[in-house]
């Protein structure tokens, strides 16, 4: 069982299926938050549902809206199970704290290359660990 260690972690332990892309993330720019899909036509996950997935992406993009939007998405249950990034901006950390969403960021190496798409993963924020199951 391979373990990847993050520099930063927040939230509760979760287990789920990874959805991986070497692309950015912004709740406002990239998502159809009502339908629960990636809506930006040029996004590598365009058209795919993010609901209940462990999203593994490169970095946070764009603006500050995600800080509110993650909680709003959580309130309707149209939310990823967890967020995993190479790097994040403060907005996603603030949003994860506000919405109680599990999030990891900062790894040795490119996390979007280290985690295969579709694999089951376990996240333990207290130990800052992502496990490939």
């Amino acid at each position: 069982m391979k373990e990847l260690i993050a520099k930063h972690a927040i939230g509760k332990p979760v287990t789920g299926t990874a959805m991986v892309a070497n692309d950015g993330f912004s709740a406002r720019y990239d998502l159809d938050r009502i339908g629960g899909t990636f809506s930006r036509p040029t996004h590598k996950l365009a058209g795919k549902s993010y609901v209940g997935k462990v999203l593994v992406l490169d970095t946070a993009k764009g603006g500050v809206a995600s800080a509110w939007m993650l909680r709003e998405m959580t309130s309707r249950g149209i939310i990823p199970l967890a967020l995993v990034f190479n790097s994040v901006n403060p907005i996603l950390a603030q949003g994860a704290a506000f919405a109680a969403v599990t999030m990891l960021s900062g790894f040795e190496g490119d996390i979007t290359a280290l985690v295969p798409d579709g694999v089951r993963v376990q996240i333990d924020p207290a130990r800052r660990v992502l496990r490939l199951l």
């Binding site: 406002r28 603006g63 500050v64 809206a65 800080a67 509110w68 939007m69 909680r71 709003e72 959580t74 309130s75 309707r76």
Partner: peptide, 14 residues
């Protein structure tokens, strides 16, 4: 920054 499209009902209630 607090436009209500971002807040939604959950943010406004908070």
């Amino acid at each position: 920054m607090a436009d209500t499209e971002s807040l939604g009902e959950a943010g406004v209630k908070w």
